[in-house]
Design a protein around this nucleic acid. Structure first.
Length: 831
RNA sequence: GCGAAAGUGGCGGAAUUGGCAGACGCGCUAGAUUUAGGAUCUAGUGGGCAAUCCCCGUGUGGGUUCGAGUCCCACCUUUCGCACCA
């Protein structure tokens, strides 16, 4: 037998065994509980990188552990296969079609995943670019269209000049494209949207169901959805004989409104100034503001610029005429695109009023201040609590009371409407690129905009297309695609040529796994809810808003379609950290990339998995270390030698250990064995701390080595050694699947180790006969004693007092107090 | 600016409930084995000290407590999120 672990042949052998035995097939034993563990599926770029190795290793440990614990486990994998890189690669390399490129990459990555020993049920594989998948993506779109959740409208949208397509708000980060980093600009276009805003409230409220999510991610989503409660208020615009509607969270400050502001894009701007002496000046100003970048314009530091329109509005609470301005600090995209300005109690309005010499009128008096606030003497806006002044019959009311009372009174009077406002915008899903699911819509001159009926789905993506980006969908130039017949009247009609955002594809894939081969419906409620929701989801924090918000939205839509009982897709979410090298994320440009292939070739899959799980807890960033990999390899070889070198000794031995027959050292090992089972079970099953679980297995291995070292073969308790060997192999099995299969077979088992039961620890085995009590003097550790575990407080204290060292302390002062913590320590307070 | 998380040996990290700081791994030192190297095994390894005694030690400064890496207050640094949202 070899004295090192021959990973190449062992991996080959067990890969074949697993394939032949269907070991990773999803369980369907009705007597077992179901468990669904899922890692975010990858974009098939062609090669696994270390980030993949990390996230899939984590998921695989959980899947294998849960199977051994006796669950039916759903652990599937698939491909987020539509998207720009396929097109870009095709453009760059010529003569290869995005489809071919994608499918080649999938085949290659799948082999790499298998080589890593990942226990996926490949029967349930989904590929979003496959017709039998995107048929249902289109189906969801048509269902949403019929429910008025998908609609087309013209608006100002984000445009990435590099990707040559529009982007959703969520895909714009710091005014740059989330994919490629190019600064986005804006275009006015007619595009398709999904009405995620209808679900804003539920997306927000249901955060409280997500106890297994990081608080940070929920906060990010809350900020993104941006709920604020307030009122809409109508101000008369006598000049236009119209009303100007504003949104405010402070209707209690209505008496303090001394001017109004319109966003430069507001439709009233031109109406108010047309034909007046202000017209040219205002046009000039609007032009100037529009040139400002969004980021600059929405920064708090940017100087507030504005211009008077010459028009006045009427404050509905007191009839006062107040001037209407246009300013850069009011955005068309939020609320109504117009505000009432209360400079005394809003810092932005205060700055603006000071600059343009507009009245400042205080209407909230701070309670702890004697002197009445006077607007003209204020140095900054006062946004705190207090009671109302200068507000007619509401004077004296506290802010909170005033809010309710005024909202109620003014609602009755008809110029105020209580309303909740959100920052969240509808999800723009049109894309002007080739490699995506076509939006299944037909335009007919007679019937209008018509959804493609179910029996005509999928609307297939044509194969032979000139897909170099032009800013318009490449499908537009494919006559055979564009020209069709209207599904309603049969007359000539034209197809929508935009494709869907790939985030639509990935918003429901985790549901399809539950019923991946269904060709009548995306999934049945029964099959989905057999597994849904995902018990443990694992993926990168970069999707905190994007994918995770969209997936939650889709789940709620699916719930409303009565295709699931559940309203949230992911019960627990683990955001795994990045893999770093030299303190930075691995990237080609930095030249600090470690290719998983090299590690697998040199050390094998088990070593790669073990290192990456041992180096750091899963949610923290992990620093790559070649030396650390060697350490993991050394440990696996240490386990290998322990089992193989002692095989003769233990081969025919029973694993039943009689604890009463053990000598002192054997008892210690026996206890460590059970303590390790407990530790690994808790760390893997509850805390998801794989690093400490592995260290516990290492400790047990070290301990058995030192036990064997200290005695001859005749003095060795071979049943205990066998039990230790079996438990080490079982505990290590989820982390290092190949080596443990091989050793399990050496130990005489016919079945796969992964088909065996997870070991259980015995509570009574953890008990110590003798325990160590720490003795402190004034809080400092001075000595330790060993004493029978069942010794009473008096017995412990008596023995403590007898210690020579302690006596010398007692001679130097008076014992004032003795603290006794059972089974742990005695602290003597001496003055 | 606001909010959150983090800060522990030469390095990655552990300490789960306020009770032995530094588990486990890397690295390093010494020894065994070996012709040698590698591999392996054994012992040691926070700093100071001749020392097993003792003193110091978990970003800094204070506090609570018999006892603080852990709780409280202030500050520093790093990372992340938010940042005219009316």
């Amino acid at each position: 037998m070899q004295d090192y672990y021959p990973f190449q042949e062992v991996e080959k052998k067990w890969l074949k065994n697993w394939e032949d035995s269907d070991l990773h097939k999803t369980g369907d034993d009705p007597d077992k509980e179901n468990y669904y563990v899922l890692e975010m599926f990858p974009y098939p770029s062609g090669n696994l990188h270390m980030g993949h190795v990390r996230v899939y290793s984590i998921g695989d440990v959980i899947a294998r552990y849960k199977r051994m614990q006796g669950y039916n486990v759903l652990h599937p994998m698939g491909w987020d296969a539509f998207g720009l890189p396929a097109e870009n690669a095709a453009i760059k390399h010529g003569n290869i079609h995005p489809k071919e490129w994608t499918w080649d990459n999938i085949a290659h990555m799948k082999e790499q995943m298998k080589a890593m020993g990942l226990s996926y049920d490949w029967d349930r594989e989904v590929t979003t670019a496959a017709e039998d998948y995107y048929k249902w993506t289109q189906w969801f779109f048509t269902q949403m269209f019929n429910d008025d959740l998908a609609y087309k409208k013209e608006s100002t949208v984000n445009w990435c000049p590099s990707c040559e397509t529009v982007l959703a708000n969520e895909q714009v980060v710091n005014e740059s494209c989330e994919r490629c980093g190019t600064e986005v600009d804006h275009r006015d276009l007619e595009q398709w949207f999904l009405k995620i805003t209808d679900y804003a409230e539920r997306l927000l409220d249901d955060h409280e169901l997500l106890e297994g999510w990081p608080e940070k991610v929920k906060t990010m989503q809350k900020n993104w959805i941006g709920r604020s409660e307030g009122t809409r208020v109508n101000f008369e615009l006598p000049k236009l004989n119209k009303e100007l509607e504003v949104f405010t969270t402070r209707p209690d400050t209505l008496y303090g409104a001394t001017y109004m502001v319109l966003a430069p894009e507001h439709p009233y701007v031109s109406e108010l100034t047309a034909g007046t002496e202000k017209e040219d000046e205002v046009k000039e100003f609007v032009k100037k503001v529009k040139k400002q970048k969004e980021q600059e314009r929405t920064s708090a530091e940017t100087e507030k610029l504005g211009i008077f329109t010459g028009a006045y509005a009427e404050n509905p609470v007191n009839g006062e005429k107040i001037p209407v301005y246009i300013a850069n600090y009011v955005l068309m995209g939020y609320g109504t695109g117009a505000i009432m300005a209360v400079p005394a109690h809003d810092q932005r309005d205060f700055d603006f009023a000071r600059k343009y010499n507009i009245d400042i009128k205080a209407v909230i008096q701070p309670e702890d201040q004697e002197e009445e606030l006077v607007g003209s003497e204020m140095e900054a806006a006062y946004a705190g609590d207090g009671y109302l002044i200068n507000s007619g019959k509401y004077n004296g009311l506290k802010v909170e009371e005033a809010f309710d009372k005024m909202a109620e009174d003014f609602s009755e009077a008809g110029f105020v409407k209580v309303e909740t406002n959100y920052r969240l915008r509808d999800w723009l899903i049109s894309r002007q690129r080739y490699w995506g699911a076509p939006i299944p819509i037909v335009y007919c001159d007679d019937c209008g905009t018509v959804a493609v009926p179910e029996q005509d789905l999928p609307v297939e993506l044509p194969h032979d297309v000139e897909f170099s980006p032009t800013g318009e969908s490449p499908l537009k130039k494919v006559d055979s695609f564009v020209n069709t017949t209207c599904p309603e009247c049969g007359g000539p009609a034209k197809r929508e040529t935009d494709t869907m955002d790939t985030f639509v594809d990935s918003s429901w894939y985790f549901m399809r796994y539950a019923d991946s081969k269904n060709d009548e419906i995306p999934f049945t409620k029964e099959n989905l809810d057999n597994w849904f929701p995902v018990d443990q989801y694992i993926g990168g924090i970069e999707h905190a808003i994007l994918h995770l918000l969209y997936a939650r939205f889709f789940t709620k839509v699916v719930h409303d379609m009565d295709l699931t009982e559940h309203v949230e897709p992911f019960t627990n979410w683990l955001a795994q950290g990045m893999v770093l090298k030299d303190g930075a994320k691995m990237s080609k440009s930095k030249g600090n990339v470690v290719d998983p292939k090299d590690i697998l070739d040199e050390y094998g899959a088990d070593t790669a998995r073990l290192f990456i799980l041992f180096a750091s807890p899963p949610e923290k960033d992990l620093e790559w270390s070649d030396k650390g990999v060697e350490g993991a390899d050394r440990f696996l070889n240490r386990v290998w030698r322990f089992v193989t070198e002692n095989l003769e000794l233990i081969k025919n031995e029973e694993t039943q250990v009689d604890p009463d027959s053990l000598d002192k050292d054997a008892k210690t090992l026996y206890r460590t064995m059970h303590a390790s089972i407990k530790k690994v079970t808790e760390d893997v099953g509850e805390r998801l701390n794989f690093n400490t679980a592995i260290s516990a297995i290492m400790e047990l291995t070290n301990e058995v080595y030192s036990y064997l070292n200290d005695r001859s073969a005749e003095e060795t308790n071979t049943a205990l050694i066998k039990a230790t060997a079996e438990n080490i192999v079982l505990l290590l099995a989820p982390f290092a699947p190949f080596i443990t299969e091989e050793l399990w077979q050496y130990l005489g088992h016919q079945e796969n180790v992964h088909a065996d039961q997870w070991p259980e620890y015995k509570e009574e085995a953890l008990k110590k006969d003798e325990i160590t009590i720490v003795i402190q003097v004034n809080g400092k550790v001075r000595d330790k004693i060993n004493i029978a575990a069942d010794a009473s407080e008096e017995e412990v204290k008596a023995q403590v007092m007898e210690e020579d060292k302690i006596q010398s302390y007692l001679e130097d002062g008076n014992l004032v107090k003795t603290i006794y913590i059972p089974k742990k320590l005695v602290n003597l307070v001496i003055e």
